Simulated assay, not measured.
Amino acid sequence: MGKRRCAVVALLATIMAVIMELAPLTVATSRRNMLTNGLGMTPPMGWNSWNHFGCNIDETMIRETADAVVSTGLSKIGYEYVNIDDCWAEISRDDKGNLVPKKSIFPYGIKVLADYVHRKGLKLGIYSDAGYFTCSKKMPGSLDHEERDAKTFASWGIDYLKYDNCNTDGSKPTVRYPVMTRALMKAGRPIFFSLCEWGDMHPAEWGAPVGNSWRTTNDIADNWESMISRADQNEVYAEYARPGGWNDLDMLEVGNGGMTEDEYIVHFSLWAISKAPLLLGCNLRNMTEKTMKIITNKEVIAVNQDPYGFQAKKVRMEGDQEIWAARLSDYRISVVLLNRGPVRYSTTARWGDIGLDPKTEVEARDLWEHKTLRTHFVGNLTATLGSHSCKFYVLKPIA
């Protein structure tokens, strides 16, 4: 028995030695396959065609939208991506296997459009799918064509790729998505990689080496229940967000008309404090003043773009009343007081919940009123909120 035990121990030692020799190679290979493109150090900001236009897109509308991003001043406060969603390509590839822009709606091709957008100082995004066809089934997906499509996108000057998850071969996203990651890394152009896997297999847990953002929820709709549920579903993954890789709650619905002004303010506030991509989904060519006021709030955007990149967590829930909080740079804390209920209510943020010493005195900046409150606060801060509304503060300790 002693000899056998020694033989087993010796065999195990040999196996471990081999594993240790291979480990550096495995790690090196893993790092080589990671999406090290230097993009997404803060959440991306821009616009996407799907929420408002669906498949009703064309070259003129995309050009006019790029014009609007500049003329409205959105580009000056960080909105830079103009993203084309589904339905832009012909149903069949050309005889070389390349994707072909739909002639009837993009007569001059995507490269010419990208050049136009770039001359505006903006970036152009495009859409594909990790399946045989996209979700609309009106154009091919990139499955089995990843390298060819990545090189095509790079040659056109594409800056952002939204990659959906429809009509697949049945394999797991953890198998299919990294293939496009590697293809993009070899394409010769940095392209922001947005994984649109809808949160089915918890992409927050594996997305960091694969993409720059990952959808944690199914598609959003322009109503309160859909919007607030997406925020809830995403919040549990807060620890996975960091510079270079972000949890994505789907595009913004602000300005599409399905919610009240207060509800849209909640929508924009929760996306901002959650460090979500701020991708507008309305028609930028005819926005109302109320919509403009919401999406151009520089103070709220600054929270979203804070270099520390900490995503907010719900730190207290009492019925319909919630407190969301996240640390910011310069020792500050961002706090959203939220009333999800049907009636007016008084809501309190307590220092113990948001990570402050109970004796700390703070200065409170109201980000929607654009004013610093005269009163300094110690221990807690209380606000009275109407139905489906919020208050958004940045708290700064007073030395």
Rank of each mutant, 00 (worst) to 15 (best):
D232W: 12
E235T: 14
E197F: 07
A231Y: 07
R242V: 10
K275L: 06
N218Y: 09
L252A: 06
I265G: 02
G258S: 12
G244H: 02
A272S: 15
K186T: 13
N218S: 11
C196R: 04
I273K: 13
N212A: 03
M259Y: 03
E253M: 15
L249A: 14
E263F: 00
D232F: 13
N247S: 14
S213Q: 15
I265H: 01
K275I: 12
E239G: 01
T216M: 14
G244E: 02
N247M: 14
A272T: 02
R230D: 04
C282L: 12
A276E: 10
V236E: 06
I273T: 10
M227K: 01
G245F: 15
F268D: 02
A231Q: 10
I273M: 08
M185R: 04
L252Y: 01
F193P: 02
V254C: 11
Y237I: 13
Q233S: 09
S274P: 00
D248P: 01
L279K: 05
P243M: 07
A276N: 15
G255K: 14
E225V: 05
W271G: 02
E235V: 13
A241N: 01
M259R: 08
W246P: 01
I228P: 00
L279A: 05
I273V: 13
M251W: 03
R242F: 07
S229A: 11
W224K: 05
D222Q: 03
T216E: 13
A208E: 15
R230K: 14
S194M: 11
P243V: 09
L280V: 09
P203W: 11
F193S: 07
A276Y: 05
K275V: 08
D250Y: 06
D262I: 01
T260Q: 07
M227Y: 02
L249N: 03
D250H: 06
I220A: 08
G199K: 09
N247K: 12
D248C: 13
D232R: 13
H202I: 14
W198V: 11
T216C: 15
S274F: 00
L278M: 14
G244L: 04
D248N: 14
I228K: 04
P203Y: 10
A241H: 00
G257P: 00
D232K: 12
